[in-house]
Nucleic acid binder design. Structure first.
Lengths: 153, 153
DNA sequence: TTAAAAAAAAGTGGTAGAAAGTGGAGTAAT
DNA sequence: ATTACTCCACTTTCTACCACTTTTTTTTAA
């Protein structure tokens, strides 16, 4: 089970390539050059899933009966343009222009890894969302993690 | 079992031909030039099924008793103008004008592959459908992907 | 403890080959 | 004769690989 961690600032070059930081690649303990699935995430970011993680998740989604309207909407939204990306020989992945536009990414990017996945943000969007959190963070923690005497906090 | 994936932006030429992206063709692991069945999809898109997938699906529908009025209506709706399309020597398929009209496709198209099939959308229609989250998304996610704090979302 | 050397990581660009895009002409069908 | 489809040829764009420079970190030795 993956336990990714870390926040990395990276740059996207003129050819829409993003080099993955060595500190992140090493966490994947993948023997071959790692492959990912990338798609649109919530709140204007992109999500990067190690291939194995994506497969595990999508397997369940693919069980859904697609004659059901609600299910179709769900599957579409779940995928949100997911596509496979592979690293080149210089540890870079090529990112679709459409996806970059979605996240408002121009050049400067923050990668934020947690659990088994990686979020990709435009730097300014990331800073903005972090700046807004603290106000309601404790409230949020309370409702997410249960009672205010939760030992986990 | 096919596990298609990917979002591709393509153009339809003046002769209503669509070149299938190499990244998609390679996923079909079909030795001969692949054949598809195309028909009207739900929600203003066209559906492209690899021939084998279509055969599997239509087989079930063909079990229905056609002397039943309701069954006939369903079958008609199921087929919705389905037709076989084959790739030409330049990896293009010719798409019926009536189908293109149905999906409001002029020139720019997004192919979105998931599970064992491919959806074909007019670019603007696609962006619109992705723009809003289905209102019951999180509930569905809960029932499909398990617990209420499921990390898979 | 510091400085120099070495190694790793980050950043950049060129290029060959593949893929995408486009048009024309020949053939078949109506 | 006109339309519709298929094949063929060509140009442009893209992308994966390779090579190189700069920066940062680690190691080694004075």
């Amino acid at each position: 089970m993956l336990q990714l961690l870390g926040e990395f600032e990276c740059k996207i070059d003129a050819k829409y390539r993003l080099r993955l930081p060595a500190g992140l690649i090493s966490q994947l303990n993948s023997p071959a050059p790692p492959t990912f699935v990338i798609n649109r995430g919530f709140e204007q970011c992109l999500m990067l899933y190690p291939e194995g993680v994506w497969n595990r998740i999508s397997e369940e989604v693919n069980q859904l009966n697609l004659y059901n309207q609600q299910n179709r909407a769900f599957v579409r939204y779940f995928y949100r343009g997911a596509q496979k990306v592979t690293m080149d020989s210089a540890d870079r992945i090529l990112i679709n222009k459409r996806l970059l536009d979605y996240a408002g990414i121009d050049k400067d990017v923050v990668l934020s890894a947690y659990n088994d996945r990686i979020e990709m943000w435009a730097v300014d969007a990331y800073e903005q969302i972090l700046a807004n959190e603290p106000n309601d963070f404790s409230e949020l923690a309370e409702s997410v993690l249960g009672g205010k005497n939760n030992p986990d906090l």
